Structures are given as C-alpha cells and as structure tokens.
Amino acid sequence: MNKENRILEGKTIVIDAGHGGKDVGATGQTGIHEKDLTVQTALNIKQELAEKTGANIVLTREQDEFLTLAERVEIAENHAADLFISIHFDAFTSNDVAGITTYYNKPADRQLATMIHDKIFEQNIDTRDRGVSQGDYFVLRENKNPSLLLELGYISNQADEQRIQTQDFQNKAAAAITEGIISYLI
C-alpha cells in the first residue's frame, strides 16, 4: 500500500450495518429485507475504505446477526472509534416517497453529515435529496464519537429499491462515503 492509500492510518472507523437477525428492518416491494442490503453496503464501504485509506475499519456485523443498539454503540466505544456511520434504507407507508437523508444528533456532527451527504449527491445518484437533519436515534445520541446515520434510499419505493440493489449504486455510495470520511478526518 503506497503512502496515498494510508492517509487515514491510525484512525478507526466503525461501519454499522443496521438491523440484522430477527430484526429485518424494512421490507421492499420485492421482498428484500433492509438487514441484507445494509450488510452488503457496509461490506462495500469497508472494501473501499481499506483500498483508499489504510484506516482500521470495524463492522458491527458482517453477517446476519442481531445486535442491540447499545451493543452497536459499545463496539464504537471499545474500539475508540474516530467515526461511527450507521447504514440504513428507509421505508414509508406510501410507496411514492423516495430519496436519501443523512442524520446527525449532536450539533458538532452536522459538518460531518453535510460533507458525506454532499459527496453522495456529487456521484450523480438519481434520487431525491432529502437533506441533512438532526435525528434522535439511539446510536447517534448515545455515541460519544462523531456519528451519523445514512438512510440511503426508500426500500418501499420501487425505483429506489431497484437502484440501491445495483452494483453501480453500491460502488457510488461506497466511493462517496469514503470521500466524505477522508475529507472529514484529514
């Protein structure tokens, strides 16, 4: 690995694949479960980060297992994470709602959320920009480390559901999130 690819050496990034095990999360129109998409996306982000940064990357889960919200926060604390990112896909009762939303909890994390959100939309991802919002999510509120939660599309929307399952989307999302992390941590 050359020096350019070790720009975050010594930093620890925790990628949290939302849901898992008995907690399937949302279910798409085709029957795909959010828990399966989040782990796939987390693995793609881990690979991109490993290739480009030299950071220590910790996944809260790499397979279909259940973790409590407190266990997810504890993983970040135990690894002295410099950054915690929770991956999700949203759902709504109406299937016409679409787009990507980035959530932060602490005012200090707004800049991080904005940086990563903006990088995602620089990737020409064909969906609605639902913006950056403050959210009262346990994994953000209870995390002592900089943290955010990404809702990378609505699994309940047919177009979003199809898009988020493509390799093109997965590659763009992983690249954008990695770029945002680099921008924030260097």
Rank of each mutant, 00 (worst) to 15 (best):
E9Y: 08
A91E: 01
G99K: 09
F169G: 01
I120R: 03
G18C: 09
F84K: 00
S133Q: 15
Y184P: 12
L149M: 04
L83W: 02
D64Y: 08
D168C: 06
I45M: 10
D23Q: 05
Q170R: 13
Q167T: 14
F66A: 07
T68D: 06
N157F: 04
L69S: 01
V24D: 11
K46R: 13
G131C: 08
P146T: 00
L112M: 08
A91W: 02
L140T: 01
A91R: 01
I45S: 07
H33T: 08
L67W: 09
H33I: 08
N78K: 15
Q47S: 15
Q63R: 12
I177G: 04
N171I: 07
F84P: 10
I57K: 00
N2D: 13
I85K: 01
T30C: 13
A98M: 14
R72Q: 07
Q47T: 12
G18H: 04
H19N: 06
I125P: 09
N78C: 06
I100Q: 01
P107Q: 01
R128W: 09
L83T: 00
L83M: 07
I7M: 06
L67N: 09
T93L: 14
D160P: 04
I57N: 00
T12K: 02
F169R: 02
Q134C: 15
N105W: 13
A76I: 10
L150Q: 00
G135S: 10
H33L: 14
H117C: 04
I186G: 07
D168G: 05
T12D: 08
V97Y: 14
L112F: 06
H19A: 04
I45K: 05
K172E: 00
F169I: 07
Y137L: 15
Q167W: 06
K46N: 10
A108S: 14
T38F: 08
L152R: 00
N56M: 10
L152G: 00
D23K: 02
L152S: 01
F92P: 05
L112R: 01
H117L: 06
E4R: 13
N56I: 08
N145I: 05
I32E: 13
T38K: 06
